[in-house]
Amino acid sequence: MSQQIIAKVEEKYLKAEKPEFEIGDTVDVHTRILEGDKERIQIFTGVVIARSGSGTREMFTVRRIVQGEGVERKFPLHSPRIAKIEVKRHGVVRRAKLYYLRDRVGKATRLKERRVKGEE
């Protein structure tokens, strides 16, 4: 019962259209950033390596390599500050969490591209 009540509370804070992407996808995350009273969009590009939580608490982790250093950012999926999530490329993966990418460097971090029917 309590889970239903919590779902009811969260309902109106969820995005009407849940952004669609999968683990292993390379995505552009467009985040709204407030600078003083100006708003601009910042883009973070990387591979989705994990998703966690449910309802308004759902989060996803994006990993990229910046100047030879691995950088991970965790975003709340339903945050109004996430303007858009663009899928650039699908990857072939066999697990839900790609934490093994953290131990890899260089060429080994690449994921094979997955061709999706109906696209292109």
């Binding site: 309590s2 889970q3 009540i5 919590i6 509370v9 969260e10 804070y13 709204r32 407030l34 309802g55 308004t56 608490r57 709340p76 339903h78 945050s79 109004p80 500050r81």
Partner: peptide, 22 residues
């Protein structure tokens, strides 16, 4: 007490909330 969750305010900030069936 029903449990805790989080909601967003107008500026997009996360607010941790406890839901109470009152």
């Amino acid at each position: 007490k029903v449990g805790m969750t989080q909601i967003y305010d107008e500026s997009g900030k996360v607010i941790p909330v406890t839901v109470i069936q009152a």
